[in-house]
Design a binder for these strands. Sequence first.
DNA 1: TATTGTTATACTCTATAACTATA
DNA 2: TATAGTTATAGAGTATAACAATA
Lengths: 148, 148
Amino acid sequence: MGELTEDIGFLLARVSGEVVRATNAALAPEGLRVRHYSVLLLACDSPDGISQRAVARILGLDPSQVVALVDELAQAGLVQRQPAPTDRRAKLVTATGAGCRVRERAAARAAEAEQGALRSLSGDEREVLRALLSRVAESASDAAYAFE
Amino acid sequence: MGELTEDIGFLLARVSGEVVRATNAALAPEGLRVRHYSVLLLACDSPDGISQRAVARILGLDPSQVVALVDELAQAGLVQRQPAPTDRRAKLVTATGAGCRVRERAAARAAEAEQGALRSLSGDEREVLRALLSRVAESASDAAYAFE
DNA sequence: TATTGTTATACTCTATAACTATA
DNA sequence: TATAGTTATAGAGTATAACAATA
């Protein structure tokens, strides 16, 4: 095989796509895709609710993308929008009881899909991969902030 | 930060998106995006030409996606379609002289963008990352073949 | 003036199905 | 009958700009 298939950028796109595909398939029975699942996770882990702005920042999305995600989760009864007591512009997204239950099942499915996709790596190797990606991601957000 | 931002799948999507974005921006002056660049690379590295089917298989794309990519590269005068001498169904994609020259410049730009995105990793660490991703990608294609 | 959420729009990417011409 | 290329279409993801309500 040529040099292209050993390029880190190429491999990242390939592996990322594969993991997203596998995770989407695993979450389908819960009526979720990875993006929705990510938002649900943040809502469940924020007992006091989380603003859509914060969701967008953490997930690296544009705030306008979050609107549709929360709309669909709310329509499915998994989250609710509540006005923020301290800032009437902001709406806090909170998970419902049903949302938390779905989240538990979805987390198990997502973890299984991810482990399947990464089955060729040992536990230690996965941890190395995670640490390296984490550092790259962190420096990327630094750069983004630097240009603001 | 919560557990989500330390999930390997999340980090893969985040970092991959960042690298693709940076590479697309770096390739823009050459009128290319990463997909077109990948096809051009394969054409340049295949002196006798490469079938669109092979391009699709190597890049992990559907053959129908390759059509538009080759169309645009051909319209820009960077590649040509030639009938395969041994199989009249197949068309071999070959790079033109202009295509090879653009490829050289594009390769330098793409490498620079990638190094920028991965600047927080040492050379050794990048090699570790590359090797781990390569193994994951390889096992993924094994699984794909297993289901065919 | 700046920020939060929202709407609208356009473009890219992904996924399928069906068709043609060859093998 | 199977394969290479092609066309068409729909859905998902990404990127921007603009707007109303509020700070």
